[in-house]
């Protein structure tokens, strides 16, 4: 598969949902600067916080997973933005210096 550096995230999303798990799909919808993963990259998350795929080099996955569990709860999609690491938001900063927007939606 062409998502090769790993797994077929969309097939996993379908598989998890079909098993009856609560599932959210996160997609990189915009990048600026040296973002680590291209637009269109996916991360799939289930209600337990299990995840596959990536939307960054690991810098913001934790924050996206937390938001995804919220999205699963509300059923409402949301768009998240992450920027350069700074003192106030370093936990969700991109150490590479890029900025990304991530769309998180429930698979329902």
């Amino acid at each position: 598969m062409n998502e090769a550096e790993g797994d077929d995230v969309l097939a996993i999303a379908q598989g998890w949902r079909s098993e009856g798990r609560e599932v959210a799909l996160a997609t990189v919808v915009e990048t600026w600067g040296s973002a680590p993963r291209p637009v269109g990259s996916h991360l799939v998350i289930d209600g337990e916080g299990n995840f596959m795929g990536s939307v960054s080099g690991g810098c913001v996955e934790g924050a996206v997973i937390a938001e995804a569990i919220d999205v699963i709860g509300t059923g409402q999609p949301k768009t998240l933005s992450f920027g350069v690491a700074d003192e106030t938001a370093w936990e969700v900063g991109l150490s590479c210096g890029g900025r990304i927007s991530v769309y998180v939606e429930p698979v329902s």
Binding site: A11, A13, Q14, R17, L25, V107, S108
Partner: peptide, 14 residues
């Protein structure tokens, strides 16, 4: 994303 749409997308990819 609706599961039905995701299924059709995965079918097309396959």
């Amino acid at each position: 994303m609706r599961l039905e749409l995701l299924q059709r997308l995965n079918e097309a990819r396959a």
